[in-house]
Each structure stands twice: as C-alpha cells, then as structure tokens.
Design a protein around this nucleic acid. Structure first.
Length: 124
DNA sequence: TAATTGACCCTTT
DNA sequence: CAAAGGGCCAATT
C-alpha cells in the first residue's frame, strides 16, 4: 500500500511550542493540578516535560498563566520545600482548595481532562 | 562547537 | 517508598 503525503510538516519553533504549552496550562481547572509530562502530552509535545518548566518560567505575567497548577508527576511541587516559590505556590493552591502537605498533594487533585473537550479547546 | 544545566519523567532496582 | 539510570532538548556557558 502506498500512502500519499498530503501535508508537509515544518518543525515547531520554540515560540510555537511555548504557545501550545501556555494555552494548555490555561485549561487546567481551578482546584486541580497537572504534571509537567501531562501538559507536554496534551500540548502535542510528548516526552518534553522539561520544556514545560522552561516555558512556564518564560511566561509573560500578563497572560496570567496558572503556573502553580503544574506540579511533578510524583505529587510534589517542583520547587524545594520551604523555598519562596514553593511557599507562594502552596498559598495559591490552598486558595483554591488544593491541600499541600509536606510539599505534596493527594493524587485525587490531578486533572483528568475530557478528551472531546480538550480537543475542541486545543486546535493544534 | 562542545559541554552543562534544568520549575521533569518513566522504568527498574 | 527511595534512588539510580537513561531520555529529552532549548538555553546558556
């Protein structure tokens, strides 16, 4: 069987990847958290968890990206416990009902996006 | 140009 | 449950 290539794909620029990541993080519902890898996957960048951290660090404040809803896959906040960043992240999460104990949260807080909904929202 | 450094992840011990 | 090892790749040195 011969397959016809109907579309040429040009590699995404770093800016485009960041855009996808920011847009995806914006979808995390209040009161939920998502892991870096989960965001990377949803953004169409499988295996690029580290890039998500990089993108969040670069995110313009005016975009109001809920960076604090992104944590590690092992349920811990990415910042060292007790660090200024970890403390503010803790506060922001607590403000929306996400309990943080010993720098970690319960598994049940992880966002479980609806497939149809996320595909509609993220037109990649 | 090459090496190092991350707001990480997954599998295996 | 914790630690180790290998992956990833953009940005920085």
């Amino acid at each position: 069987m011969v397959f016809k290539q109907t579309k040429v794909t040009t590699p995404l620029t770093t800016a485009q990847k960041y855009q996808r990541i920011w847009q995806t993080v914006l979808q995390i519902p209040k009161g939920n958290v998502a892991s870096y890898g989960q965001i990377a996957d949803l953004a169409g960048l499988p295996g690029r968890a580290r890039l998500v951290g990089k993108a969040l660090g670069q995110a313009p404040a005016e975009l109001a990206i809920p960076w604090y809803r992104v944590i590690r896959s092992d349920r811990q906040l990415a910042f060292p416990a007790g660090s200024p960043n970890a403390i503010s992240q803790h506060q922001l999460l607590l403000a929306e009902g996400v309990l943080v104990v010993n720098n970690r949260v319960k598994k049940s807080y992880y966002w479980q996006p609806d497939l149809a909904e996320i595909m509609y929202q993220l037109q990649f």
